[in-house]
Design a protein around this nucleic acid. Sequence first.
DNA 1: GGTGCCCTCACATCATTATGCTACAGCGCC
DNA 2: GGCGCTGTAGCATAATGATGTGAGGGCACC
Lengths: 217, 217
Amino acid sequence: MEAADTRVLIYEDNPDLRLSLSHLLGGTPGLELVGALGNCQQVETDIPRLKPDVVLMDIDMPGINGIEGLKRIKANSPKVSVVMLTVFEDNDRVFQAVCAGADGYLLKKTPPAKLLDAIGEVRAGGAPMTPAIARQVLRLFPKPVAPRQQEDSPANLSAREQEILGLLVEGYSYKMIAHDRGISLDTVRSHIKKIYEKLHVRSMTEAVSKALRQGLT
Amino acid sequence: MEAADTRVLIYEDNPDLRLSLSHLLGGTPGLELVGALGNCQQVETDIPRLKPDVVLMDIDMPGINGIEGLKRIKANSPKVSVVMLTVFEDNDRVFQAVCAGADGYLLKKTPPAKLLDAIGEVRAGGAPMTPAIARQVLRLFPKPVAPRQQEDSPANLSAREQEILGLLVEGYSYKMIAHDRGISLDTVRSHIKKIYEKLHVRSMTEAVSKALRQGLT
DNA sequence: GGTGCCCTCACATCATTATGCTACAGCGCC
DNA sequence: GGCGCTGTAGCATAATGATGTGAGGGCACC
């Protein structure tokens, strides 16, 4: 899981903030501060040299700004997680950052503890962002897209069976299904046995695959 | 700013959870629980009758599911805020919910205090969501423009790992994979462990579901 | 009133999966 | 030559899933 510390790189042009961020991160077990730079001018070489796992990127910087820095990082090292730091929840910036592949979006006034949490979250595959920014992102989201239909023959599965198959597709275990639906584990077993018979499969994976491919969900 | 309490309506088919949510919300000053319903069948009449400010909507419900309920609410009462509740951070559902105008997206395991916070946030114009879900939303976001990379669709899986994931999707067991590829069972385990880490899942079913939904096959 | 299907539950047993640790060879990159 | 990643492999243990057998209550249908 975690052999080494998380390597963090900071881009922040304000010396005071840069310093306090450095102290915060440098003093945290599990994190290794590999750099704290005042601009993005050498971002293309900084990244391979310092090999950060996570970059904290101020969005407002002279010269190459944070959005541009983000783009350059993602162009060459898409696996590096980049969390943007900003003062305002400015619609346009959020939009640009999201389009450029930002992995998180925090306000500078975020309390230190939350900031550390955020680094952990982004390492775990999450995308930390404040609710207000999240709302911006949702607003930016395009409304269209093809609605999917179903309502076709659910292949002799009973309603209950379909329901349970749906939960399997969601990744539920027997236990979770039993708990979620308030029935016993053995009942879940019974249903799933039936589902297997009807779908002609012999494992959860086969059932899930068949369900997704045949639109039984 | 706030003269009256925030009126909250719950849709949740699991009676236990419905009850505990009811107790939680009912006992919180500033909130008024106007209903806790087990399904969305009457959503069109529930809303005008109960006049909620915020709706907590379970995404997995028999009959009319949460996504459909959300759409119906937004069709007639777009000003009502709807926060979706789910067990898993499932790409497809998140996508549908976001497209249908969800105002927040939380895991059921969210601790009570966070849940109450979330209601406050949504009233304040924010969009509460967990980092993991936020990440899904960002991934869904169209990445237009020049640098058309997306080496992360194949999501950092190595060639071998993708190959094995493909076999899982086909319903192969560990044994079958080992035999088919002429490697040991333990090696199959190793690969699958790696795949789970990279996909952030914990079971074959989740991996298969994610693979199929994200087109990793 | 019998027949069939669905939903529920139990017990038992064996097979498979999930997870943690460790290890080593090959390769590409400074 | 060390470092990181991939692919290979083994071992151990706990948890979960697969399968069989049996069974009672409900409901619909003829």
